[in-house]
Design a protein around this nucleic acid. Sequence first.
RNA 1: GGUGAGAUACUCAAGUGGCCAACGAGGGCAGACUGUAAAUCUGCUGGUUUUUACCUUCGAAGGUUCGAAUCCUUCUCUCACCA
Length: 408
Amino acid sequence: MLIRVKRKKMINEALREIKRGVSEIIDEKRVVELLKNYFEKGESYFVKAGFDPTAPDLHLGHTVLLQKMALFQKCGAIVQFIIGDFTGMIGDPTGKNETRKKLDKDTVLKNAKSYEEQVFKILDPKKTQILFNSSWINKLGSTGLLELTTTFNVARMLEREDFEKRYKSNAPISISEFLYPLLQGYDSVAIKSDIEMGGTDQKFNLLMGRYLQRAYNVGKEQAVVMMPLLEGLDGVNKMSKSLGNYIGVTDEPNDMFGKMLSISDKLMWRYYELLSSLSIEQINSLREKVKDGLLHPKNVKENLAMEIVQRYHGDAAAKSAKAEFEKIHSKNQLPSDMKEFELENSVWIAQALVDCGLESSTSQARRDIKQNAVSVNQNKISDMQMQLEIGEYILQVGKRKFAKLKVT
RNA sequence: GGUGAGAUACUCAAGUGGCCAACGAGGGCAGACUGUAAAUCUGCUGGUUUUUACCUUCGAAGGUUCGAAUCCUUCUCUCACCA
C-alpha cells in the first residue's frame, strides 16, 4: 500500500515537471498511462520528434523541445529522433519555402552527424534512436503513397490554418505540400510512436500522426505534446536562423552571453520559464524580488546567461564570458581576444575597416565615420580621409565590433 | 486554351518621360540616454578615395527618345476570372 502511494507521488511529480511550459497536451490520459507503466512495470515507450535535415544549426528555440524530450528520457522514454530526409525535399508548408532540392546522401549524413553532436549535449545518447524517414517512405512505392493519400481529403487538409489562409487569400498551394503532413504522420505509423512532440505550429501535422495511426490500425494512438515557440532576441518573432534573432548552441561563449543579456527584461522571464533548470517556485521568487526592487534585473539576466553558457560550454567558459563582458561593457575596456589583421603600406581608414571585416563597403565605412561610430585606438575619429601609417591600431565600429590591425 | 491585372531596394509599398539612387512604413545599423535592457529622440540605410561627383540598379532582352522605373516590342514568372 505504501509503495503504491509513493509511486503515485512519483508519477504526479513527473507529470508536473513534464507539463511545465508546455503549450498543450492532447490525450494527457495516455501520457499518464505511459508514465504509470514505466514507474510500475519498468516498461519504456517511444517519444518521437522530427527534424529537418537541411539546418543542422540548433538554436535555443530547438532546445526547448529537446530539454523536454530529455526529461521524458528520465521518465522511461526512448527518443525517436527523426531526420526528415525525405520530407525535407518538400519543405514544411509553414514556411514559404518552395519545393527544395533533394539533398544527396552524403550531405544528409553529414548533417545528421552534426545534429548528433549538438543534440547529445541535451539528450541521453543511450536512450535515443536516430532514424531517417526516407528509409520507410521509400519503401512505400507509388501504390503505398496513393493509398496514403486516400486516407484524407482536401476539405480537411484545408482546415489547416496555414492552408486555409493561403487558400482564402488566393496564394498558391502546391499539391506536394499536401503530402507533407501525410508523410510526417506516416512516420508515426512506421515507427509506432507513443508520444510525438513538436512546436505549437506543428499541431496539424502532429494530429495527423494520431489520425493515421488509427487509419492504419497501429493499435495505439500517439499522444501529442506541444511546446510553445521561443521568441527570438527581438522578442517578437519566433527564434529562427533566417531572421538572425537566434542564439545557437554552438555560438561562442562570449557571443552567447552577450546575446542573452541583450534580450529585454520582459523576454527574460519567458526564457527563464522555457530554458532554465530552476524550479517554477524559484523563478517566481526571483520575479517577486525584482518587482520589489530587491534584485536588479540585470543581475537576474546575467544568472540566466551564465546558466545557458555553462550548459553548452562548461563552467569555466561561462565565468570567463561574464568577466569578458564586464570588461568591455562595464569598464569600457577592450576585449582580450580580437581578430588580427595585417596590411601593407599606409592604408585608407575606410578600406582598412572593410579589409578587417568590420564594414561591408567603404561607403558604409564613410557613413559610420560621419556618424561618429568609428574609433581608432579608443578615440572617435571624424576624418574620412585618414591614413593609417605603419604601426599597430585597434579599430572599433559601434559598440561591439573590434579588430586589431598591423600596418607594415 | 481565352481574357484581364501585375513584377520597384531586406520586406511591404509610392512613383506612369527629366526635379529619381527612387516618397512612405517596417526592419537593420549608428549616435544620445541606459543596465550593450525596454521606451524615447536623432541620423543613416546600392557602390566607388572624382563623394554638391561618377558608376550600377525598378522581372529579362531589345527599341523609341537629347533623356526611360515610367512609352513600344518580345520573353519569363505570378495572380484573378472564364474553360
